[in-house]
């Protein structure tokens, strides 16, 4: 059964068309990666799916869907006297779910007591990102929407975050829609890929959908083919570096 059905979705921001006539579906357990150059409408797409932006067209979530959201970047004031303990409790109370699952979530994402009680502005990029992923898991979601979850993490930390996300998805059978620039991640973990450049450029399994033509159309002519038949030998290529 489909968890999400998007039909003819269009978003305009300040008289500028950002997403045009986009249709796709998300099945249970599916891991959909959204690829596209900067300004292609990826973040806007996620926000429209979360109903945070006005849009035209249809976004229909199945009734039993519970969404966890990991935003791209939070412009939090570094002086805020807020810890992830405060934030986790605030979300539990707002969603009226028990606080008892917090310990398990913290363990799952590798947040120690010390990290949980450190003000958010004093955490490293990796710790902060783990906090956000933990935050998204409160309320037992069955779909995760993630917007470049490793954007503020250094290279070795990136790998850990991807492994963490992959493990959580496998253990809890979570479907996901993830905006990512990391093609090696897309080839390793995504079941489907949606290429976006305002309009849908491709949709399908990464091996089939991401042809050299499509990548060239997305990122320009200089982009070669990235994927490799052997998963363990994938080069870590980032679209920003090509």
């Amino acid at each position: 059964m489909n968890l999400l059905s998007v039909k003819h979705l269009s978003v305009r921001l300040e008289d500028r068309s950002v997403v045009e006539d986009l249709s796709f579906e998300l099945a249970g357990g599916e891991r959909l990666s959204v690829l596209g150059p900067n300004g292609a409408g990826k973040t806007v797409l996620l926000k429209a799916l979360l109903n945070l932006l006005p849009y035209k067209g249809e976004v229909a979530w199945a009734p039993h869907v519970r969404i966890g959201y990991v935003p791209q970047k939070i412009d939090a004031d570094t002086h805020l006297p807020l810890t992830f303990t405060d934030l986790f409790r605030a979300k539990c109370t707002t969603l009226k779910v028990s606080l008892s699952e917090l310990d398990e979530i913290a363990n799952n994402v590798g947040l120690t007591k010390r990290i949980l009680q450190t003000p958010v502005g004093h955490l490293s990029g990796g710790q902060f990102q783990r906090g956000l992923i933990g935050f998204s898991l409160i309320g037992s979601p069955n779909v995760l929407l993630m917007d470049e979850p490793t954007a503020s993490v250094d290279e070795p930390g990136e790998e850990h975050i991807y492994e963490l996300i992959n493990r959580l998805q496998t253990e809890h059978n979570l479907a996901s829609i993830m905006v990512s620039h990391d093609l090696s991640f897309v080839f390793r973990y995504a079941t489907n890929v949606l290429c976006l450049n305002r309009q849908k450029v491709c949709f399908g399994s990464p091996m089939e959908a991401l042809s050299p033509d499509v990548l060239a159309k997305l990122y320009g002519e200089s982009v070669g083919l990235y994927h490799h038949d052997h998963h363990d030998r994938l080069a870590r290529n980032k679209t920003g570096a090509v």
Binding site: L50, L52, I74, L80, L82, F135
Partner: peptide, 8 residues
């Protein structure tokens, strides 16, 4: 912390 995360 984040109006967007609060809305979500």
């Amino acid at each position: 912390f984040s109006p967007e995360l609060a809305a979500a």
